[in-house]
Simulated scan of single mutants.
Amino acid sequence: MLHTKRWAALVGLAALIAGLLPATPAAAASVTFRAATLNIYNGLSDADFRHDLDLIASRADLVGLNEVGNRKALLQSWAAANGWWLYSPGGVNQAGETLIARKSQFDVLDQGSVFVCDTNGPGEVPPARYNNWVKYRHKASGRNVIQINAHANASIEDNGRPEDLPRTRCAEQQFQNLKDLAVAKQAEGQVIVSGDLNVDFSADRAVGYARFPWAVFEANQLPNLRSVYNLYGEQGTGTHGNRHIDYVYFWKRLPEYQLMWLTGYEIVGGTKSDHNGVVATFSIEK
């Protein structure tokens, strides 16, 4: 009888301890959504632009677009007709990093745009850079999701090594600002970062230049950003030629605090643009 009572007490204690521990991803009830990035070349015809917009929208629920500031009116009419939220602030340069989200899955809570740098002055090439963000409430889970979207200057790296140019220094400022935004927003919800960063993932990781995305975003200990390529390898031949320069990241926390997981991704080809899209699938705890 004494042995039975001790065993019952031990079982009860174990159950109490288990109840206090955080739920594991396998045990927690969760729902999924998809977040994407696509740079739609600004020189496309309206028909080809619409093709790429419809293509990426058919694969995702949140999308960060790049190079679309000259299509603001088209985007506004498309979003209104198709049930999408649209954040496309300011003029052509600022609106270039537009964010869209399905109204059926998300509500908009807040949004903002951060000016980062203007390499050669107003109206000069390359244009001014902005990091745009929107904070959403994911309806199915009730949790906040923040997407930050960016487009870095082109021609800033050579096989993972930085080019010694003003545009490179501008991009370095932008990467740091993206990291700072992600750090600030992670207290408000689950953070996703997307965009065309114009630095190849594998070359960047091999070189490890201190001011490029691998070192700024991914190489440090948790909590930190993690990209689809870091977690699941480089799929396909690339997102721009043979380079993987278009990214989706999420804010990866210590396991006991993680409420959202990046569970896989695909590269979306068949675009009219010179870029392929990237669509990441997320599981988020209810």
Rank of each mutant, 00 (worst) to 15 (best):
M1E: 13
M1I: 11
L2N: 14
H3V: 15
T4V: 15
A8F: 11
A14G: 15
I17Q: 05
I17K: 06
G19N: 00
L20E: 04
L21S: 01
T24S: 13
A27Q: 13
A27F: 07
V31K: 11
F33A: 07
A36W: 08
L38E: 10
L38I: 10
N39A: 13
G43A: 10
L44P: 00
D46N: 11
D46S: 11
R50Q: 14
R50P: 02
D52V: 00
D52Q: 01
D54E: 14
D54P: 01
D61N: 11
L65M: 09
R71C: 08
S77C: 03
A80D: 10
S88N: 14
S88C: 15
G90V: 06
G90H: 08
N93V: 05
T98K: 06
I100G: 10
S104D: 14
S104W: 10
F106W: 02
D107I: 04
L109N: 09
S113P: 04
V116D: 06
T119I: 03
E124Y: 12
V125R: 01
P126I: 00
R129K: 12
R129S: 07
Y130T: 08
N131G: 01
N131S: 13
N132H: 08
H138A: 00
G142H: 04
G142L: 08
V145P: 03
V145G: 03
N149T: 06
H151W: 09
H151V: 01
A154E: 03
A154S: 14
A154L: 08
I156V: 11
E157D: 10
D158H: 13
G160C: 09
R161M: 12
R161Q: 11
E163S: 11
P166L: 09
R167K: 14
R169I: 08
C170H: 06
A171T: 10
A171I: 07
Q174A: 11
Q174S: 10
F175H: 10
F175L: 02
F175Q: 05
N177E: 14
L178C: 13
K179M: 13
L181F: 06
A182Y: 03
A182H: 05
A182G: 15
A184H: 06
Q186Y: 04
Q186W: 08
G189C: 01
V193Y: 10
S194M: 00
L197K: 08
V199P: 09
R205T: 09
R205K: 15
W214C: 04
F217G: 07
E218D: 08
A219I: 02
N220A: 13
N224K: 10
Y229C: 04
H240I: 07
I245E: 09
V248H: 03
Y249F: 15
L259G: 10
L262T: 04
T263S: 06
E266K: 06
V268P: 03
V268D: 09
G270S: 08
H275A: 11
V279N: 09
T281Q: 11
T281I: 00
F282T: 07
F282Q: 05
